[in-house]
């Protein structure tokens, strides 16, 4: 082969590689369809603008209908809008309580404290019981309204360890550690305490500087949290300002690796092999 022909062949190969690689390179550099809408939706949601956020999530899902994250977020926001409408329009009933509870949990887990306070104030006016007080106290704490929380819990904190923990936590946040310790003595967790109570008492312990106790409670809370909800629970632990004093401890990272010990009930799956309820499907 002559040098010219070799040069020509080499040039052809280089050209071919460039032709093939160019669109790939462009695709890697270009933003994914719907990404901007999705980011905008998240930003609006953080500001508590649920309806506006829903529009952007829907636009993201329409731009990339195969993107399950976008579609699921759009569906969740559509659901939240439905719940908001239902809660706003209807009177107290079993369905109203269930719907309000779903909405409350979404707000709290999404860090939407002010919206949670708005909802739970109405819920507590209607329900006037320890459950609604728990919701409202949780909402106040999420929104950083510690004074309102202590005012509310002055009446209710004796009704459950969780309410006592909320009360003590609010007091600790207000710089009243002695009062917090006194009230916190009522936050005695039972042997079979639920993970939410354990988590809240762990927050209180951490706020009072009882790090070892806080870590032990947190570990038990994670162990009692179903596997599907564990990432969410750990995310809340990482983000919690009450647990910030633990973040620097090596044992905190170890606690965050805790696995769930909950045997899950079967709600289906495409395959038994990865089913967390393996062996319990028919029960």
């Amino acid at each position: 082969m002559s040098p010219m022909k070799r040069l020509s062949s080499a040039a052809s190969i280089v050209a071919l590689v460039l032709v093939v690689a160019a669109p790939v390179a462009r695709a890697e550099g270009a933003p994914a369809p719907g990404a901007a809408h999705y980011a905008q939706g998240e930003a609006l949601l953080k500001q508590g603008q649920v309806d506006e956020a829903a529009k952007f999530f829907l636009a993201a899902a329409r731009a990339a209908p195969k993107n399950q994250a976008y579609v699921q977020r759009a569906l969740v926001l559509r659901r939240i809008q439905g719940l908001r409408r239902f809660v706003a329009k209807n009177e107290l009933s079993k369905r109203w309580v269930t719907s309000a509870r779903s909405l409350h949990l979404f707000y709290v887990q999404s860090g939407l404290g002010p919206l949670a306070v708005e909802l739970d104030t109405v819920a507590h006016q209607r329900m006037q019981n320890a459950t609604s007080a728990t919701w409202l106290a949780e909402a106040y704490l999420e929104a950083g309204q510690n004074v309102e929380a202590t005012n509310l819990l002055a009446t209710y904190s004796g009704q459950s360890p969780r309410l006592a923990a909320y009360h003590a936590l609010a007091l600790a946040r207000l710089g009243r550690p002695e009062d917090a310790r006194r009230v916190g003595q009522r936050a005695v967790v039972a042997e079979d305490a639920d993970p939410a109570t354990l988590f809240d008492v762990a927050r209180l312990s951490a706020a009072l500087g009882e790090n070892e106790k806080a870590l032990a409670l947190l570990r038990t809370s994670f162990e009692r949290t179903p596997a599907a909800a564990l990432p969410l629970a750990k995310g809340r632990a990482r983000a919690s300002s009450d647990l910030a004093s633990l973040a620097a401890l090596p044992s905190f990272a170890e606690v965050l690796r805790t696995q769930s010990k909950v045997k899950q009930t079967c709600r289906g799956g495409s395959s038994c092999s990865s089913c967390p309820n393996r062996g319990g499907c028919g029960k």
């Binding site: 329409r62 699921q72 969740v76 509870r101 949990l105 599907a228 969410l232 009930t265 709600r267």
Partner: peptide
């Protein structure tokens, strides 16, 4: 539509797609 699962404390997505029903109007 997603449903809040109190057992696990989080929103559970429905895995079911019903033929001819498009809850978000995505058209796909």
């Amino acid at each position: 539509m997603p449903y809040y699962d109190y057992d696990i404390g989080m929103m559970r997505m429905s895995p079911f797609g019903i033929e001819g029903y498009d809850p978000l109007g995505l058209g796909g």
